[in-house]
Design a protein around this nucleic acid. Structure first.
Length: 222
DNA sequence: ACCTGATCATTA
DNA sequence: TAATGATCAGGT
């Protein structure tokens, strides 16, 4: 594990320094083996990037670089540079949400500043040969934040009103709510109708690929 | 080809 | 169980 970067500039420079390298090269330097595929190692690339950038790597509900106020996200991209997957942000609170405001929400904290690192993600490319792209340090524009806030408020209102069972991935223009668990049998508390506690599948907020694509496009092609 | 619900590993 | 890191894969 590399030392923690002391400034935003140092973090960005370090991210730029690994751009263009393959996952084999980065794994070799980190002293880790490359899995055959990501099927049973879904977070492997993210962990590898954390190592190279000196992220704290704890399972805490905080940004990766809390002192700098920056969250690290790897994002798999196709040959044409488009995101191949949605981006998970964080678990959604399903209880104790009355009076919770966007400004104090966990999801807004994570989305306030993100260091995006594109990585070739096409399954036709062997993991070892996939290249890391140029980093992008992003904060939402006024328009983007309004869009995120609107989605968040719609989803959180449904959660607060006991409508969790009616929420599907189709809600939200930029931010959607989807299951996030080891399997579909995992249960957690949530509000049911008339405020009674019920058990339901844990959910997380995800950024749609259309939204992250816009972020990447506006940065690399303007 | 894309989307949505399901899933995988690991730590505290 | 909840949190981190995400991608899988079948149905449309």
């Amino acid at each position: 594990m590399k030392p923690r970067p002391k400034s935003e500039k140092e973090l960005l420079e370090r991210a730029q320094a690994i751009a263009g390298f393959s996952l084999l090269e980065l794994a070799t330097e980190a002293g880790v083996r490359i899995p055959k595929n990501l099927l049973k190692n879904k977070g492997w690339i993210g962990k590898l990037l954390e190592w190279h950038l000196g992220a704290i790597s704890k399972n805490k509900a905080q940004q990766d670089f809390e002192q700098l106020g920056i969250e690290l996200k790897s994002i798999p991209i196709s040959y044409s540079g488009k995101p191949l997957e949605t981006t998970s942000i964080c678990l959604a609170p399903l209880v104790g949400v009355h009076g919770l405001k966007w400004e104090q929400s966990h999801v807004r904290n994570k989305l306030s500043r993100i260091l995006w690192i594109p990585v070739e993600g096409d399954k036709k490319i062997p993991l070892a040969k996939r290249l890391v792209g140029s980093p992008l340090l992003w904060s939402p524009s006024k328009e983007e934040e309004l869009k995120l806030k609107t989605d968040w408020e719609e989803l959180m209102e449904m959660i607060a009103l006991g409508q969790i069972k009616h929420i599907t991935a189709q809600y939200g223009e930029a931010l959607q709510l989807r299951p996030k668990a080891t399997n579909s049998r995992v249960l957690t508390n949530a509000y049911g109708t008339s405020g009674k506690l019920i058990k339901t599948l844990p959910r997380a907020f995800y950024l749609r690929t259309q939204f992250t694509d816009n972020i990447l496009q506006s940065h690399f092609f303007t």
